[in-house]
């Protein structure tokens, strides 16, 4: 299953390192990564493959969200189909 990780907040050192450390520890593969400034917010988007993840989705979401809290950012992980269904026919 593919999921989308979004990081929204103020740019700072160590965002990618922080997120990718959690992913690597959980055996989650990063397929694509992009970052941009949207409506004034730093936005990083990662497409990841969670099918071989060592922990369940809820635990992974919890770890990412906690990391976000530490760094003053909002970090979410959501099933890719949510975005596909909303924006693609």
């Amino acid at each position: 299953m593919r999921a989308i990780i979004t990081v929204i907040g103020t740019d700072r050192v160590g965002i990618i390192a922080g997120v990718s450390t959690i992913l690597s520890e959980s055996n989650v593969n990063i397929l694509d990564i992009t970052q941009t400034i949207m409506q004034g917010f730093f936005t990083m988007i990662m497409v990841v493959d969670v099918s071989k993840s060592g922990i369940n989705f809820e635990q992974l979401a919890g770890k990412l969200s906690a990391k976000g809290d530490d760094m003053g950012l909002k970090i979410k992980i959501q099933h890719e189909d949510l975005f596909k269904s909303m924006h693609r026919i």
């Binding site: 989308i4 979004t6 929204i8 992009t34 949207m38 936005t43 979410k76 890719e80 909303m86 924006h87």
Partner: peptide
């Protein structure tokens, strides 16, 4: 891939 603007739009709809 879904473009970042679309992802951002969905997230804004849900969170704000």
């Amino acid at each position: 891939m879904i473009n970042p603007h679309e992802i951002f739009e969905t997230i804004t709809m849900i969170s704000n």
